[in-house]
Design a binder for these strands. Sequence first.
DNA 1: TGACGCCGTTAACAAAAGATAATTTAGCCG
DNA 2: CGGCTAAATTATCTTTTGTTAACGGCGTCA
Lengths: 200, 200
Amino acid sequence: MGTSIDTLQELLFDLAGVLPADTAPLFAMTTPVSLETNEAYIREGENSRRLAFIEKGVVRAYTIKENGDEATLFLRWEGQFIASHDTIINRQPSRFIYRALEPVKLLQIDYDVLEEILKTHPEYEPIRNFFLMKMLAESLKMLESFVTQSPEERYRELLSERFDLVNRVPDKYIASMLGITPVSLSRIRKRMHTKGKTVT
Amino acid sequence: MGTSIDTLQELLFDLAGVLPADTAPLFAMTTPVSLETNEAYIREGENSRRLAFIEKGVVRAYTIKENGDEATLFLRWEGQFIASHDTIINRQPSRFIYRALEPVKLLQIDYDVLEEILKTHPEYEPIRNFFLMKMLAESLKMLESFVTQSPEERYRELLSERFDLVNRVPDKYIASMLGITPVSLSRIRKRMHTKGKTVT
DNA sequence: TGACGCCGTTAACAAAAGATAATTTAGCCG
DNA sequence: CGGCTAAATTATCTTTTGTTAACGGCGTCA
């Protein structure tokens, strides 16, 4: 146990030079959370401003479209952060659902509590910036892929960069994240088998 | 003159309760920049870590694809921030070009300088968070539109939310931002004229 | 004014994706 | 092991997009 805390302490030290011994005030406010497969972490309409570091497992963020279909915004896995961006950034009830695709272990903190701690411990600010920048970088990277690549190219890139993830997650969620239907993803895979076998 | 500074000072006060009189150290390090139509603000391969508040005009962030075509990642206009995310977040030479589509007025600061100021003036931290969150919110909103909407729906939404922008910017850049070709955008517009005239 | 270039539109065809439904595969639970 | 259910594949048809090229409008500039 304590793996998440260890990892985050390393992060803090690397980023801000804060020694593990000095992080007590921060980690005193974190809560370990376990989720079963298919359990919701944040539900639609929820207002809690939770932020979590994923120690283990995969979490899917998705929304329900007007026609009732689900659309996966992104997947997050161990080493990444998840946050209810509607509630934290926009102070709106969450339009998104965050659900575990596997048994998940999180280290959770409430964003409001984090802000309180930052008032008295500004030396932790780099953590907040780090997590914001990391999420921004990931979003921009996905955005970039949508304007520069075809669905097939996005899938090929995902395969080459996150092969493990693609194999852990049902195809229909991968398809949805790529902005296409499962049927279409299936055709892309067929095309890839018959034609060019290259993975990049 | 001073409009950008006034706007930012209001922002700072609203966000952090910092009085305009106390923002001298911050604004002493900002530089007003003017760009002509079609002038590049940041070029491909550049390493400068510039961050700017747009007082007036529209800036386009785009990249050159392998096949030589351009792909527009986003457009930014007055009241928004632009930043070279490759250099600031990833510390890599910029793969993107930031170019003025109209005469542009910016208030610029170097991110490294901003970080220095933040070390001695942690009361400005909310500014950094604000700009990061704003960029993150915008990116996530665009990402959401890609996984939940068709190109036509994205265009209709853009029209209803940013009609002024669509009319200020050549269609081909709008198309590229929507992830489609100019030909396809033209067909979408034709369809919208003949069929449903509703804008949402 | 006339030539040039850029941009938006249109056309024609190929390629890909959406929608729907049927079929096969695979995982899960008793 | 058998049976149930969800997921993935396949098929068919429609719609949309990509590609390429041609055409017209419009502004710039010599």
